[in-house]
Simulated assay, not measured.
Amino acid sequence: MKRSLLQFTVFLLLATAGTTQAGGPRNLILVAGQSNAVGFDAYAAELPADSSDKDVLFWWRCGDPPPDEHDSTSARHWTHLQPQPVGNPILRDTKDGGEAGPKLARQYGNFRKPEGGFGPEMGLARELHREENQPLAIVKVAFSGTGMRTDWNPQDAGDGGACYRALVEETKAAILAAREQGIEFRLRALVWVQGESDANAQDAPEYERALSTLLAALRRDLEAPQLPALLGVNTHFGNDKNPFIPKVIEAQRAIATQDRRCAYVDTAPAETLLPTRTHFTAAGTLDVGQRFARALLALEAAAAPK
């Protein structure tokens, strides 16, 4: 009974979601990146309720690399904005006596807590709803611990490009699924929360080139040549001691300066989880989403005809 009621609710949401109040396509925003895009430490139990969530179409896939059956997903169906469950993370083997066995490479689980969590999509959508009160859809594709060279490289047909391909494939599948319900989208923006994994001696010097390559490829592959991109990273990653985070920030700022369709979003004031400050807290994650929403509105206002 509960499943049938949920399916009927989603059907009604989709049935009334085809156009905005102005009669055009519904805005679609992509949210992507690594663990702070996933919301690894943004616990679902700490998310305040908001009635506007039910009006936002939502499609997600998040986990850890590589993209696989262990990810948390919306099962390639549209639903409404909500925290995401942990999915089916690989359990580490234990030795006799219960000691942890060998650590599996880059298998972190989707969220730290069994209750699941949420990313900046929540604060983003809620802030836009407060400012605009317009229909919105979000596709979220994010994977913890992922870097440009190792996971998001559109020029790598192997594992190094697996997360990029997942972003493109999930976005196309989401658009097609909506179209089959009579819903058309306008790709409004990419929200990119990533860079911590590139804050190292090998990858930081290449970050600007790598992220520029990803943006160019995504605009091409999604046939959205003017797609705006909002760029941000946890500036406190490494407890303010990582010497390469400033290089990543510099690269994101440089892209935003060179590309009028991009904006750098400063996340420094957002609350991070002590003692390591690796991830934003639930309150910090909501704050980050709100900052991206305000940056998007400012970017669009600056581009509007005078």
Score class of each variant (00 low, 15 high):
Leu81Thr: 00
Gln155Ser: 14
Pro205Cys: 07
Pro25Ile: 10
Val191Met: 01
Arg126Phe: 01
Ala204Val: 09
Phe292Glu: 05
Leu230Thr: 09
Leu176Gln: 15
Leu296His: 05
Ala173Thr: 14
Ile29Cys: 13
Phe40Trp: 13
Asn242Ile: 03
Leu12Asp: 11
Gly97Tyr: 07
Leu211Val: 15
Thr272Phe: 02
Glu208Ile: 06
Pro120Leu: 04
Ala142Asp: 09
Asp71Lys: 06
Asn200Arg: 10
Ala304Pro: 10
Leu124Ser: 00
Arg291Trp: 08
Arg186Lys: 14
Leu299Lys: 06
Tyr164Ala: 03
Gly145Pro: 04
Leu231Asp: 02
Arg188Lys: 15
Phe244Tyr: 15
Gly87Ser: 06
Arg294Trp: 07
Gly238Pro: 06
Pro246Arg: 10
Ala282Phe: 02
Glu131Gly: 05
Ala224Ser: 14
Tyr43Asn: 12
Gly195Ser: 05
Glu196Ala: 13
Arg126Ala: 00
Ala173Lys: 12
Gln226Phe: 08
Gly87Ala: 11
Ala283Pro: 06
Leu6Arg: 13
His279Leu: 01
Ala256Ser: 15
Leu136Ser: 04
Leu297Gly: 11
Arg260Ser: 15
Thr16Leu: 10
Leu104Arg: 15
Leu190Glu: 06
Tyr264Phe: 15
Lys103Ala: 15
Trp152Cys: 02
Val265Cys: 12
Ala22Arg: 13
Gln134His: 11
Val288Tyr: 01
Cys262Arg: 08
Ser72Val: 06
Leu6Ile: 13
Ala295Arg: 02
Glu121Cys: 02
Asn242Phe: 03
Ala268Leu: 13
Pro102Gly: 00
Arg165Pro: 02
Glu69Ser: 13
Arg253Cys: 09
Thr281Arg: 06
Thr213Pro: 00
Gln252Ala: 05
Ala210Asn: 14
Pro89Glu: 04
Pro120Val: 01
Pro205Met: 07
Phe143Asp: 02
Pro205Lys: 08
Leu13Tyr: 09
Leu14Ile: 08
Leu187Gln: 15
Asp198Gly: 08
Pro275Trp: 11
Asp55Ala: 12
Ala174Ile: 06
Ser52His: 07
Gly33Cys: 04
Gly24Glu: 11
Phe292Ser: 03
Phe237Trp: 15
Glu115Gln: 14
Ala295Trp: 06
Arg261Tyr: 12
Arg209Trp: 13
